[in-house]
Write a protein that binds this DNA or RNA. Structure first.
Length: 494
DNA sequence: CAGCAGGGGGCGA
DNA sequence: CGCCCCCTGCTGA
């Protein structure tokens, strides 16, 4: 220590961070991105994703959306769940038979420590004072360790919570050109290549008989286990190492040397055109969202499904298969830094069940008390089909499905004349009129014609005549009600 | 003007 | 219940 310089150390800094990380993950607090995989939604944190994967870091850097949705194609849900465990907890149990697939998924997503060599951030960031390396958390120089070589508990070792050292890594990821490719297209890394020497040894694999099927219900216990493990392990470390390893928090974006993500409207890219959809949240909605968030603070009785951060969206995934990034920024109005307290559970987005699950149950945490959240819940009773991404809700499932297309980017109605695609057929119909020039709404007073009734109605105001009557069965318009009634009769006669 | 999105009605499985 | 169709309103160019 230098003269007069005091070093204040927070001995439980890491364990606290691990604990909070597990907590915010379990409660979906502060989630600012969503992974969609095989019909499930996984609310995640950009910070964590970016920390553990340059691939995600690049996606998020190229995506200005505050809450992008990343649809992962050809990544198995179970693999993703395991990888999320790995990224959040630092370790994961995986059956040996599933290791190859998991590693392949990790390579597609360039998960540090699994598919991409990670590096101690304290080394990479040369500004740190002769940091005491934490051997336990240092990922091995190789990406993976074989179980028999690790001698540990048979779990995939924890990657260092690092950031900003990815490009300085001496081992460029095998899929360095990945960013603009779909994970599924990363097959340039054959599975047989996984254990090859060019790649570091695989992580140690647990031989425990735990189920790694869907990961449901297992994460929580796993979380707690990991927390306790980390805590105990960290507590045995030299305190000085703690401060150094966490001295430089993740800075966010990846390095500029990454290949650019292709333009959002290119079609056969894995990172697809991402339609930026701004979800307007007015004050009322904001308050509602906040309240619902706040409600979650004391509503820790989330069931397993919510804990697992998954939601069905199978109908939409059928169209997907690409990576899409969109904005569902219901949390715009406030950030994590505005929320006092370490728990900060207010940040949880109003995750509402939908689809098959949403139909059955409303978010439990929305019910209860006399707070505004409960009032919003009452509204949701009337409109039971709530959007997972925003505050929209409706009483018709098909309308919700249509609405969800605005988030998933699905546009099933393709224009035969151009690349335009619409989320609903009627919009395509109107669009096609721009090609055909059809203007079926004729002004009865002048040669004006419009492609839309609304345009005609606005035009009719220029004639300074009274109320106009538009036939609901055809494009007939008149200003005289008797004539209009006569015209209507012609339809009834038919 | 064109795109987008929400809501409602009708119809058939 | 899902799909199709329609109307309507808002928004940006």
């Amino acid at each position: 220590m230098e003269d007069g310089l005091l070093s204040l150390k927070w001995n439980n800094h890491k364990s606290t961070f691990f604990h909070i990380l597990s907590e915010v993950r379990g409660k979906h607090t502060y989630t600012d991105a969503t992974l969609a995989c095989e019909g499930k939604f996984f609310p995640v944190h950009k910070l964590v994703m970016s920390t553990c994967s340059d691939y995600f870091a690049e996606i998020f850097e190229k995506t200005p959306c505050k809450n992008p949705v990343v649809v992962l194609k050809d990544i198995k849900k179970s693999d993703l769940e395991a990888l999320l465990d790995y990224m959040y907890i630092g370790e994961v149990d995986v059956r040996q038979s599933e290791l190859a697939g998991l590693i392949k998924a990790a390579e597609c997503l360039r998960i540090k420590g699994l598919a991409v060599p990670d590096e101690d951030p304290t080394k990479a960031q040369k500004k740190g004072p002769s940091s005491v390396p934490e051997r336990r958390e240092d990922s091995p120089p190789a990406k993976r360790k074989r179980r028999d070589s690790g001698g540990d508990r048979g779990r995939i070792p924890s990657p260092t919570i690092s950031r900003g050292s990815s490009q300085s890594s001496s081992h460029p990821p095998s899929a360095s050109s990945v960013p603009s490719q779909a994970p599924s297209q990363l097959s340039s890394v054959p599975e047989s290549h996984v254990p090859s020497q060019s790649m570091p040894p695989p992580p140690s694999v647990s031989q425990e008989t735990r189920h790694v099927d869907s990961g449901r219900g297992r994460q929580d216990s796993h979380l707690q286990q990991s927390q306790s493990q980390h805590t105990s392990q960290i507590s045995s470390l030299r305190p000085s190492a703690d401060t150094s390893s966490l001295r430089s928090p993740p800075s966010g974006g990846p390095e500029s040397s990454h290949p650019s993500i292709t333009s959002p409207r290119s079609s056969d890219q894995s990172i697809l055109p991402v339609q930026m959809i701004k979800v307007e949240v007015d004050d009322a909605d904001n308050s509602g969202a906040k309240d619902s968030h706040g409600d979650r603070e004391d509503g820790s009785e989330m069931d397993g499904d919510e804990e697992e951060t998954s939601n069905d969206f199978s109908e939409y995934q059928s169209h997907g298969g690409e990576i899409e990034k969109e904005e569902h920024d219901q949390m715009d109005s406030y950030g994590a830094d505005q929320i006092p307290g370490p728990s900060g559970l207010q940040g949880a987005p109003p995750v509402l069940s939908w689809g098959e699950e949403g139909e059955a149950g409303f978010p439990h945490n929305l019910f209860g008390g006399d707070d505004p959240a409960a009032q919003q819940a009452t509204l949701n009773v009337e409109k039971p089909f709530a959007c997972h991404f925003c505050t929209y809700s409706t009483y018709r499932r098909d309308h919700l499905n249509t609405h969800l297309r605005t988030h998933t980017g699905e546009k099933p109605y393709q224009c035969p004349h151009c690349s335009y695609a619409a989320t609903v057929g009627n919009n395509l119909k109107k669009h096609i009129r721009t090609h055909t020039g059809e203007k079926p709404y004729l002004c009865p007073h002048c040669p004006y014609s419009a492609s839309r009734n609304s345009s005609l109605q606005r035009h009719l105001l220029t004639h300074n005549v009274g109320k106009s009557y538009s036939c609901p069965h055809c494009f007939y318009v008149t200003f005289q009600e008797p004539v209009y009634q006569l015209h209507l009769q012609t339809h009834f006669d038919q």
